[in-house]
Structures are given as structure tokens and as C-alpha cells.
Design a protein around this nucleic acid. Structure first.
Length: 400
DNA sequence: ATGTAC
């Protein structure tokens, strides 16, 4: 028995992780059930941030027995959230100016990008010395480098590295506010009041190219292996992008040394991996294996939560990736425009500020367009998918 | 969510 109440038709394969306090759009549940009806689908789990997407819902994990479905990974393969704990950092009074300046200029020198984007990366991260995050990059990206040799046209996508991207993506400096699991928080260096860099970004044009190439296919054998190799490149690209964004935040904070980093973990939201004899596709959904840390992203008006996964098979070892939208973008543009003056849009209910020149995006991404995160986290905890560690409230959020 | 074209 799941806790979805009576929202789902009799369908043993689809379930929703949501207490009655979580509002869910009917169209999202319809899309979830539609995927679950596929003969090869063993289970489809909607997370409490489930919302309608392009034919398939966002905020769900799908377990397939035999085949890989690139469509269920979507056009932003590798998109995810990076959390970097910085411990106690003294904030400069000119922080806002410094963050603005950092994100107003190109992120890295051309020659460094080239070094990053080609197979030369495999020989070491030394080319990135200018940011002071090279060791950090090397540690997070791993020895395989950014991409398979020759599979990434750096001239096309390289300039996207270290930039935020659009939509719900952001780079943020936040502060730990509520500490629920003090032991875990201390162990991670995420004590109350400590600073965190939080980066939500994806694989940009590379992920789109991948989606266009693989389309709505059902993959097995050699084709599946080819797709997985492409996907691995997109995941490394997206992860590198997040690391570079974190590097820029560190630069603005005046924290240029990797040893100041007390913890770092990266959650991939759009991915497919083989787990327990299933191809587990996560679409807007973070892995939460037993002991694995995940960030469930808030909305500036509501905090983000760091949770520890419990590896619950009923939830396909996953958790929600965020609070989830409450309004469609078009609806948000109209309603928020009527509700607030332009000047009110850059300061959030929690006191944080957003740096964003795009008024339309400020409407679409306003906290009012998102659900409260509290029932979302509560649903994950009640269903025993994860446990709360700490909450993080935004101080400065950069969006493009 | 994206890069490009309109």
C-alpha cells in the first residue's frame, strides 16, 4: 500500500509518493500512468514534486526491465545539483557587487576551455589553474575526463561551460538554517550558519543534441551501449559545468582554495542507470541510495533541504529534485506580474536576493510559482525514502 | 531547457 490515496487508478505499476497535503496536477498523474502502461515498465514512481512535462512527467523514476528510453531522460541529460559546503565564511560587504561582476564576465579563458573540452583533459586538470578550483574539479569529475575523445565539439558547446543556462537553473550562495540531524551535519561540515554554494545546471546544447539524436527509441544491446556512452559524456559535461559555476561563486566569495571546501556532493536529476536488474530512469529526480546525500531544491521563498537517502526500493532509491512547480510558466507570468511591482521581485520572503536581468524569468521563476517544500520533504520522510539533515536558505541567487 | 532564427 502506497500513500498516494485515491489519486491513481488501479495500477500496480504506478505510484505517487505524496501525503494528502501535496497538491498534484491531474495531467502529471495521467502522464505517469501512461508511461507505466508500457509493457517493459516494471514500476513508475511519481515524487511529490511531480508535474507535467513534454509528454512525460517531470519528478519521477521509471524502472524498465529490458530497454532504455532516452525520452525518459529527456533533453537536459546530466542536469542536476551540486552542493559545496564552505564552513564558516566571513561575508564581505561587497559580496553582491562581486557576484554581479563575476557573472557579468565570461567565465574562463578560451585556452582553458579548450583544455577542458578536449581529451587533453584526461592528462590532468592543470589548465584550470586560473580559478583555483582545479583540484576540486579533478576530484569531482574523475579520471575519465569530460567526454570521450572526439565526441564533444568544443567549438559548439565549450562556451557553455561555467555558465548557468536558463529556466530553473541557478548558482546560489546559501546558509544552513535548520539542523535536524546534528551528527550528520557536523560530520559533513554543514553546521548551523555555515555557507554553501549550490549550483543547478545541465548539459546545455549537448544534452539537446543527444535527445535529438536518440529520439523516442527503445534501446537494447549495442544501441543501448552507444547511448550510454553519449549520456556519460553529457553527465560529465553537466557536472563539470556545475563545478565551474561553484568555482565562480568561490571566486566571488574570495574562497579560492579547494581546502576550504568541507564537503561536496553532486546529484544528477536526468539520467538512467542499471540498478537491481532494472534500467532506472530518473527525470527530475535525484538518486537516494542508502546513505547517499541529496539536495531537494527550494524556490528562494522556501528553503532547500539536504537529505540522506534510505535506498528504499518502493521509491526506486530516489527522492524529489525540488519543490515542484505550482503554476505553468505562462500562468506565472500573468499572475506574478499582476501581484508584484518590478522592485519587489528581487528580494525573497526569506530575505535572499536574486540577481537576474530578465523580468520575464523573474515572473516564471518566482517563489509563488512553486509549491511549498515542507509537504514535499514530509512526504519523502513519511514514505521512508530519505531523512532530513539540514535546510539551506538562499542569500544570493544568480539566474540568467 | 536549448540555440537559433525570425
Amino acid at each position: 500500500m502506497d500513500n498516494s490515496g485515491n489519486r491513481l487508478a488501479e495500477d500496480a505499476k504506478a505510484r505517487v509518493i505524496a501525503t494528502p497535503a501535496v497538491w498534484l496536477e491531474g495531467e502529471a498523474i495521467r502522464q505517469l500512468e501512461e508511461v507505466a502502461q508500457d509493457d517493459d515498465c516494471a514500476s513508475a514512481v511519481g515524487m511529490p514534486d511531480l508535474h507535467p512535462g513534454p509528454g512525460i512527467p517531470i519528478g519521477a523514476a521509471f524502472g524498465f526491465t529490458q530497454t532504455i528510453r532516452p525520452r525518459l531522460v529527456g533533453s537536459d541529460a546530466g542536469c542536476g545539483a551540486l552542493v559545496v559546503g564552505l564552513g564558516k565564511v566571513k561575508l564581505s560587504s561587497s559580496l553582491e557587487r562581486r557576484v554581479r561582476a563575476e557573472f557579468a564576465r565570461p567565465p574562463f579563458a578560451e585556452e582553458n576551455l579548450d583544455a577542458l573540452c578536449c581529451s587533453a583533459w584526461k592528462h590532468g586538470p592543470a589548465a584550470l589553474d586560473d580559478s583555483g578550483v582545479s583540484e576540486f574539479l579533478g576530484a569531482l569529475i574523475g579520471p575519465d575526463g569530460l567526454c570521450e575523445s572526439g565526441d564533444l565539439p568544443s567549438s559548439v558547446y565549450g562556451s557553455a561551460l561555467g555558465t548557468i543556462g536558463g529556466g530553473n537553473h541557478f548558482a546560489e550562495i546559501g546558509r544552513v538554517t535548520d539542523v535536524v540531524d546534528k551528527g550528520a551535519a557536523t560530520e559533513l561540515g554543514l553546521g548551523k550558519g555555515s555557507l554553501v554554494a549550490l549550483c543547478h545546471s545541465g548539459s546545455r546544447g549537448l544534452g539537446k543534441a543527444l535527445a535529438d539524436t536518440w529520439g523516442h527509441t527503445a534501446l537494447k544491446d549495442d544501441a543501448a551501449a552507444d547511448y550510454l556512452a553519449d549520456l556519460a559524456g553529457a553527465v560529465r559535461f553537466a557536472r563539470a559545468n556545475r563545478v565551474l559555476l561553484a568555482g565562480r561563486l568561490l571566486r566571488a566569495l574570495g574562497v579560492a582554495r579547494p581546502k576550504k571546501i568541507v564537503c561536496a556532493f553532486d546529484c544528477v536529476h536526468n539520467h538512467v542507470t542499471r540498478e537491481n536488474n532494472l534500467w532506472v530512469h530518473r527525470k527530475g529526480c535525484a538518486p537516494a541510495h542508502n546513505g547517499q546525500m541529496a539536495a531537494v531544491l527550494g524556490s528562494r521563498g522556501t528553503p532547500s533541504w539536504i537529505v540522506r537517502g534510505l535506498g528504499n526500493p518502493d521509491g526506486l532509491s530516489s527522492v524529489a529534485h525540488g519543490a515542484g512547480r505550482k503554476m505553468m510558466r505562462s500562468e506565472a507570468r500573468e499572475k506574478i506580474r499582476a501581484r508584484y511591482r518590478r522592485k519587489q521581485l528581487t528580494k525573497s520572503r526569506l530575505g535572499g536576493m536574486v540577481i537576474c536581468d530578465d523580468t520575464k524569468l523573474l515572473y516564471e521563476e518566482h517563489p509563488d510559482a512553486y509549491k511549498d517544500i515542507e509537504p514535499v520533504i514530509d512526504s519523502l520522510v513519511q514514505a521512508k525514502l530519505a531523512e532530513r539533515i539540514v535546510s539551506i536558505e538562499p542569500l544570493i541567487t544568480v539566474k540568467k
